[in-house]
Simulated assay, not measured.
Amino acid sequence: MKAGFLILAALLALTSSSSAFDPSPLQDFCVAINDSKSGVFVNGMFCKDPTRATPNDFFFSVKEGNTSNPLGSKVTPVAVTEIPGLNTLGISLARIDFARKGLNPPHSHPRGTEILIVLEGTLYVGFVTSNPENRLITKVLNKGDVFVFPIGLIHFQLNVGYGNAAAIAGLSSQNPGVTTIANAVFGSDPSISSQVLTKAFQVDKNVVDYLQKQFWWDNN
């Protein structure tokens, strides 16, 4: 009886973990298209006839991002929108460029774990564990160093070197999503009630009003 219960628990654990990520493809590829009349709807996208696939369906050229903004950073995503051939393959990546002291602000990816490799420069990176610990785990990375940000957790990267920096992030979803914390909380449309935010952050309403009036820059 005990052995049967353990087997059932293991099966349930495997089922719950596998359903949390992109489903595995049942064909070589399923190139995404926007034409609903000539495609089959698979995993959120319409797919073209595989015999009509071209090399460009699997190609994208990543350029250095423009960091001349208040954050001093630019994220260039390479997901299914940029490479249609990524559809159903469960992976994507992004290039992140940093000016001196540039910041990729605290954010999370609801559908993907991120693994980051530094191409150049020095980055201070970290993530915060979930409740109740809310423990900050950080590391200073140099060229060639790799760091992992677990799925769904709030994380950030800050350029602490003396020049520009750049990194490549791989993500375990073709469309991992991104929620930038400050933008979501203080820049939502319509705005979150100040009554909610003053109690949540335990600050005066004038502080909340000020933050909600700011322009929250999106570096994506």
Rank of each mutant, 00 (worst) to 15 (best):
residue 161 G to D: 01
residue 101 K to F: 03
residue 171 L to M: 13
residue 129 T to D: 07
residue 63 K to P: 00
residue 115 I to W: 02
residue 145 D to S: 14
residue 66 N to D: 15
residue 125 V to Y: 01
residue 72 G to A: 02
residue 142 N to Y: 11
residue 163 G to T: 02
residue 85 G to K: 15
residue 168 I to F: 07
residue 72 G to Y: 03
residue 81 T to I: 01
residue 76 T to L: 12
residue 70 P to K: 11
residue 87 N to E: 05
residue 156 F to A: 05
residue 157 Q to T: 05
residue 114 E to P: 08
residue 56 N to I: 03
residue 159 N to M: 11
residue 71 L to D: 02
residue 160 V to H: 03
residue 123 L to V: 05
residue 104 N to S: 09
residue 100 R to I: 11
residue 128 V to F: 07
residue 145 D to P: 06
residue 156 F to W: 09
residue 141 L to D: 06
residue 67 T to C: 14
residue 102 G to T: 03
residue 94 A to S: 12
residue 60 F to Q: 11
residue 89 L to P: 04
residue 123 L to E: 01
residue 166 A to V: 03
residue 129 T to K: 09
residue 96 I to P: 02
residue 69 N to V: 08
residue 169 A to Y: 02
residue 167 A to S: 14
residue 66 N to V: 13
residue 60 F to M: 10
residue 153 L to Y: 06
residue 133 E to M: 15
residue 128 V to D: 01
residue 106 P to H: 08
residue 148 V to D: 00
residue 127 F to I: 13
residue 117 I to E: 09
residue 152 G to E: 03
residue 63 K to V: 04
residue 101 K to R: 14
residue 58 F to T: 06
residue 150 P to L: 06
residue 156 F to P: 01
residue 125 V to S: 06
residue 99 A to N: 11
residue 127 F to Q: 10
residue 87 N to L: 11
residue 158 L to Y: 10
residue 54 T to M: 10
residue 167 A to D: 02
residue 122 T to M: 06
residue 159 N to Q: 08
residue 134 N to A: 14
residue 167 A to M: 04
residue 131 N to S: 15
residue 137 I to P: 03
residue 95 R to T: 02
residue 133 E to W: 12
residue 111 R to N: 09
residue 124 Y to H: 14
residue 134 N to S: 15
residue 108 S to T: 13
residue 63 K to Y: 00
residue 88 T to A: 04
residue 165 A to R: 08
residue 170 G to T: 12
residue 121 G to D: 07
residue 66 N to T: 09
residue 150 P to V: 04
residue 130 S to V: 08
residue 55 P to T: 06
residue 169 A to N: 04
residue 64 E to D: 05
residue 138 T to L: 06
residue 100 R to P: 08
residue 58 F to A: 08
residue 151 I to Y: 01
residue 154 I to V: 14
residue 171 L to A: 01
residue 54 T to P: 00
residue 102 G to P: 04
residue 90 G to Y: 02
residue 116 L to F: 03
residue 136 L to Q: 03
residue 154 I to W: 00
residue 169 A to W: 05
residue 58 F to R: 13
residue 91 I to P: 04
residue 134 N to Y: 15
residue 152 G to L: 07
residue 74 K to F: 11
residue 122 T to I: 10
residue 69 N to I: 05
residue 170 G to H: 03
residue 77 P to G: 06
residue 67 T to W: 07
residue 101 K to Q: 09
residue 162 Y to F: 07
